[in-house]
Nucleic acid binder design. Structure first.
Lengths: 212, 212
DNA sequence: TAGATTGTTAATCGATTAACAATC
DNA sequence: TAGATTGTTAATCGATTAACAATC
């Protein structure tokens, strides 16, 4: 009895954006907002906002609009920010260490519980008070700690094996920073970040602008 | 006389992916490929591949398929990888320094020419052989060097003013890492990265999977 | 040549936008 | 109550997929 159909990925990808705007509204003391007013701020249509939100429920009120705090908390729940995902970083290089100190992740409900690497000179060190451990101890670590997510910031050529190992340890979600499409393994969920892809799109758009 | 209509952003965003797959094919010594075979590897339809490529020209040959090296070089040109964009990093914190050492950017035609910050303890130091300079010297630096792109890895609250300053210095493209939608200023092109948005989507999908 | 595979047009699908009755 | 604005259905738009004639 699967009564509600799956929300499209296009909608899901807009949710963090709604969350950011609502957070800003809340911070500036605005308590109610109409889809019309929000659409002006976000640069999308009011129709789209109402359609998107109605995938999850009727959070508004006719003639009034939306209560900012209520809507903010609803999206917080929908996005799982209240879940407190236990997260490990695999790969304690520059990018791994940068992500470890990224302040936004904790605010969004992601708790860093461990950092792993294979490089002897790094192991035993710590980032943000969290010890860097040897990757081979991840399996034991996952038995003791219920790890939800692994952030993969490992060299390109090691990524597939590390991903495979992480999922074998029972980690169900991978956030991959290598410039490759990691294939789903052992049923794990994967988000590929592809920073250089994004930069290449910027380059394309810059050339396009200059040519016009 | 604008005879060719603008390529949709959906297509442009797939180009780096084609580029990666072709690079891999080239590395493994495969010299020709059909849209059918490539579609299997990439997990998209052959129709989409042919449609996408034909936005830019007819690179294939009936009965044969595509020459891998030729197609690779065409996409390289289309994406502007041959352009060698001069790039500066603004914000020499953890993320800025991590990006400075990210090996893929140079390979993709982005040359790091300067790093800027306002923090006195950082200025004078260097990353990857490139001196960290005071942000207020950026204007002069841009007069002496033709800077194409600024990578913004500055704190959230300083981002709008820094972006505005960078564009006033004549920089036409910004790659923004702050969790906010930077508005186009002085006609500059902007790509927002939004790492925490991506992580939140991963969290949503993980919850969704667990609930099913 | 015959088989394979492109380039391109037409059909389908899904996402966005418009419209409006319901109702606060 | 009258005005405003939602939730939702219908219309539109654009992107993806299918089909196939052209041709290597």
């Amino acid at each position: 009895m699967d009564e509600k159909r799956k929300v499209s990925i296009a909608v899901v990808k807009r949710l963090p954006r709604y969350y950011r705007y609502l957070s800003d509204l809340l911070a500036s003391g605005i308590t109610r907002i109409s889809s019309k007013e929000l659409s002006t701020r976000m640069g999308i249509t009011a129709s789209q906002i109402r359609q998107d939100l109605n995938c999850f429920g009727g959070f508004g009120q006719q003639g009034y609009g939306y209560n900012v705090e209520l809507l903010y908390n609803e999206i917080k729940k929908i996005m799982g920010i209240t879940t407190n995902f236990k997260t490990v970083i695999i790969g304690a290089g520059n990018m791994g260490r940068a992500l470890a100190t990224y302040p936004n992740f904790e605010k969004r409900g992601f708790e860093l519980v461990g950092i792993f690497d294979v490089e002897p000179s790094l192991i035993g060190g710590s980032v943000k008070g969290i010890k860097i451990m040897h990757l081979y101890t991840l399996e034991k670590f996952c038995v003791d700690n219920k790890v939800d997510i692994a952030i993969l910031t490992v060299p390109h050529d090691r990524t597939p094996e590390v991903a495979e190992y992480a999922t074998r340890c029972g980690i169900q979600a991978l956030w991959n920073f290598s410039p490759m499409d990691l294939k789903v393994q052992n049923g794990a969920i994967i988000e590929n970040v592809h920073l250089s892809d994004s930069l290449m799109v910027l380059g394309y758009r810059l050339n396009e602008k200059r040519e016009s």
